[in-house]
Computed example of a mutant assay.
Amino acid sequence: MRHPSRTTPLQQGGFTLVELVMVIVIMGVIGAVVAVFMRSPIDAYLDSNRRAALTDTADTAVRRMSRDVRKALPNSVRTPNPQCLEFIPTRTGGRYRTAETVAGDNTSLNFAVADTTFNMLGQHSLSPADQQIQIGDTIAVYNLGIAGASAYLGDNTAAVTGVTDGAETTISIAAKQFPLESGSTRFHVIPVEEQVVAYVCTGGNLHRTVTTGSFNSTCPVSGPVLAANVGSCTFVYSGSDLQRNGLVQIQLDLNSNNEPVRLYHEVHVNNSP
């Protein structure tokens, strides 16, 4: 009778403990060498991502500011300090009638007395919905940004109390005698929901704050954060009162994990009232 063959210990295959330790050590050395060569590309990739994110944030903020400034009421842009940019936004504008259609119909804007109604040339209802005049909006005529003709002081503004469409749009306002006529018979409309807009840098954030119900503003910072990780920002406005054109210079510095990004942008301001 045959018995099954048995394998002796000398015939069994495998690794000794010493061999396993040597393999682990060799693999560790190889991994360390690979890590040294991989670290720089990975760090560069992460740095590039951070720079891209910062650049995108700064670019979005600058574009938003530029869009707002271009719609500002002429001669309303000001920089109370280098970290604050303020202006009065506009919803739309138009031309007022200077002569009555029929004597005594009160369709023209009278600058000799406190007027309460006038006709706008054209129909405001044909404008896009976000540009249509609303009750509560403010009419500004010939804003020069100086005493006697300053929208901030209420010299040349009146609240809209009614809007009626016909062959022309009739705008009713709170009784107001406007101090100066516009050479181009223009008026601007300030939205009721945004009477003063302020961009302020403080505490590492860029805030966009809206003031309603008043044109008094002192660079408030209660608004939402438009950009975070702000190292510094500088606003410079070049253009004094009575100049047709102005220039807003915006410099925004963002920093994240010692990765800095700086954006510089200039915005043309039309100050023709």
Score class of each variant (00 low, 15 high):
Arg2Trp: 06
His3Cys: 04
His3Tyr: 14
Pro4Met: 07
Thr7Cys: 00
Pro9Asn: 14
Gly13Thr: 15
Phe15Val: 11
Phe15Arg: 11
Leu17Tyr: 09
Leu20Lys: 01
Val21Thr: 08
Val21Asp: 00
Ile26Phe: 14
Gly28Leu: 04
Gly31Leu: 15
Gly31Phe: 15
Ala32Ser: 10
Ala32Phe: 10
Val33Gln: 03
Val34Ile: 15
Ala35Thr: 13
Val36Pro: 00
Val36Ile: 12
Ile42Asp: 00
Asp43Tyr: 09
Tyr45Val: 08
Leu46Val: 15
Asp47Arg: 14
Arg50Ala: 05
Ala52Ile: 02
Ala52Pro: 00
Ala52Trp: 04
Ala53Gly: 02
Leu54Arg: 05
Thr60Leu: 09
Ala61Gly: 05
Val62Pro: 02
Arg63Phe: 04
Ser66Val: 06
Leu73Lys: 15
Pro74Leu: 06
Pro74Asn: 06
Pro74Tyr: 11
Thr79Gln: 02
Thr79Tyr: 02
Asn81Leu: 03
Pro82Arg: 15
Cys84His: 02
Leu85Gln: 02
Ile88Gln: 05
Thr90Val: 10
Thr92Tyr: 08
Ala99Gly: 01
Thr101Pro: 00
Thr101Ile: 13
Gly104Gln: 13
Ala112Arg: 08
Thr117Met: 09
Gln123Phe: 07
Asp130Glu: 13
Gln132Glu: 15
Gln132Asp: 13
Gly136Pro: 11
Ile139Asn: 02
Tyr142Gly: 00
Gly145Glu: 07
Ala147Val: 14
Ala149Glu: 07
Ser150Trp: 08
Leu153Asp: 15
Gly154Tyr: 12
Asp155Ala: 11
Gly162Ile: 15
Val163Phe: 03
Thr170Ile: 14
Ser172Cys: 01
Ser172Ala: 15
Glu181Arg: 07
Ser182Val: 11
Thr185Gln: 04
Thr185Met: 01
Arg186Thr: 14
His188Lys: 08
His188Glu: 12
Glu193His: 13
Glu193Asp: 15
Glu194Lys: 12
Cys201Arg: 03
Gly204Ser: 04
Gly204Lys: 04
Leu206Trp: 09
Arg208Ala: 06
Pro220Thr: 01
Val221Cys: 03
Gly223Ala: 05
Gly223Tyr: 07
Pro224Leu: 10
Pro224Cys: 08
Val230Met: 03
Cys233Ala: 07
Cys233Trp: 03
Val236Gln: 06
Ser238Cys: 01
Ser240Thr: 15
Leu242Gln: 04
Gln243Leu: 12
Asn245Cys: 00
Gly246His: 07
Asp253Asn: 08
Leu254Tyr: 07
Asn255Tyr: 02
Asn257Arg: 11
Asn258Tyr: 11
Glu259Phe: 03
Val261Arg: 10
Glu266Pro: 00
His268Lys: 09
Asn270His: 06
Asn271Met: 13
